[in-house]
Amino acid sequence: MSMASMWKRFVKGWKAFWHPVGKVQTIILLSVLFFVILPFFSPIRFKDPLRKRLGGPSFWIKRKPVVLDLERHHFPF
């Protein structure tokens, strides 16, 4: 077995071992973010961003006109 193929096998095994570890680590980090950091921003709910309140004469929202400039749309926002 050549050094190159041994290295490939080692990398493959390394990835296979660390992939699930990485997944668990991601969940732990995101959970910390969710329960520790996000609560500071959650008062946003009092502004009713999802428009949960019912009632009122109309539920339409006026759309802003789209700027028809090619350059403007090279941004993902």
Partner: peptide, 16 residues
């Protein structure tokens, strides 16, 4: 993100 914040903590699974 807005939905996650507005629905915290019910939105945990969705966030993860």
């Amino acid at each position: 993100l807005t939905t996650v914040l507005a629905e915290w903590p019910l939105s945990y699974n969705s966030f993860i």
